[in-house]
Write a protein that binds this DNA or RNA. Structure first.
Lengths: 182, 182
DNA sequence: TTGAAAACTGGCCGATCGGTCAGGAAGCTG
DNA sequence: CAGCTTCCTGACCGATCGGCCAGTTTTCAA
């Protein structure tokens, strides 16, 4: 058995690429399977041949970011509290900047997040990372870390033509004003 | 001529009340006119009798917050830069906390904000208030003020059972860490 | 009390949604 | 070449969407 059929992967990838672009531009709910199919140059039925429903397309779009985040969590777990905090500030920022499209998509799904089990893991990991970033169990610092992450995600949503590096620097600067070292 | 017909205003108000509740809970796009009508105890046709389409319902939901914000802008315009900054920090926080439901609704509409002229004024005023909050024209401080407002709006979206006063205190605390006095 | 205006509604419309299915086209293997 | 699997599609489905309209009920001033 072939590990992957080239044709299958090519179409699949194009669907995910276009779905990402559209979700980011118009929001998950406002994009139809027909929109995705047209953009990817195939029929709606083909989209549903490759993915088991619209939520599965969303899951595929989110998957790379979710995997990267899970990797970050795994690393952070091996560090001391102070190290984990510094690690979280730097790498969570990186992740949000690089995957800023995903950040945008997630925001649009928040109101119905309970009905989307396919992204529950991503969200849970994000909250875990926020806890690492706080650096302490003090409720105020935890709340401020959440505040910081909200600002971070918001900034990555509307980058205003900033380059990755400019955006990363801005976010890290803001985080260091908000977050107290452990 | 009667200034207002009681029956008309009563129904209108109930529709707006229920629409607000539903938009906040499930997002603008996920709420149908039928949902609003059922919650308000009338028919979908009645909703369309009082409001010229679904966007008009949204505009009515947002109107009180928009009016309050416009009033804030008018006051801030009469102040010195330093006074306006302090004014913005305190009263923009208040506004976001009191109208937190509206904050939630707006977030859901952001991806299609260009197609919603009825909320363009609100958004423009919010950005103006953000500029006052920065306290200087330095691009970095402007960006940080935007970052702060993103955090503010995010915190008001998911209040986690906090009281108005707790939420207001948290936001003001975070803002004072992020914002440099003019 | 009465009649016109205001408030309201059931039923219908075209469009679009996510999703299904039978079957055609393409590609690989013998 | 034949035959099987994979890939893909047009046509169709039931549901629901926002919106419209003709007509009924309610309100209220004269």
């Amino acid at each position: 058995m072939a590990v992957t059929t080239p044709a299958r992967e090519r179409t699949r990838l194009e669907i995910v690429r276009q779905a990402m672009r559209l979700f980011q531009a118009k929001g998950y709910n406002a994009v139809s399977l027909q929109d995705i199919a047209s953009a990817a140059g195939c029929s709606k039925a083909t989209v549903l041949y490759h993915f088991n429903g619209k939520p599965a397309v969303l899951a595929a779009v989110l998957e790379p970011a979710a995997a990267d985040l899970a990797e970050l969590i795994k690393t952070a777990r091996t560090l001391s509290r102070a190290e984990a905090q510094e690690f979280a500030i730097q790498h969570f920022t990186d992740l949000a900047v690089v995957h800023r499209g995903v950040v945008d998509v997630i925001q649009d799904v928040i109101p119905v997040i309970d009905e989307m089990p396919e992204i529950a893991g991503l969200v849970a990991d994000g909250m875990q990372m926020t806890r690492y970033m706080a650096g302490s169990d003090d409720p105020l610092e935890q709340d401020l870390a959440q505040f910081a992450v909200n600002g971070l995600l918001g900034a990555c949503r509307r980058p205003d033509g900033r380059t990755d590096e400019e955006l990363r620097r801005l976010c890290e600067h803001a985080l260091r004003r908000l977050i107290r070292p452990a």
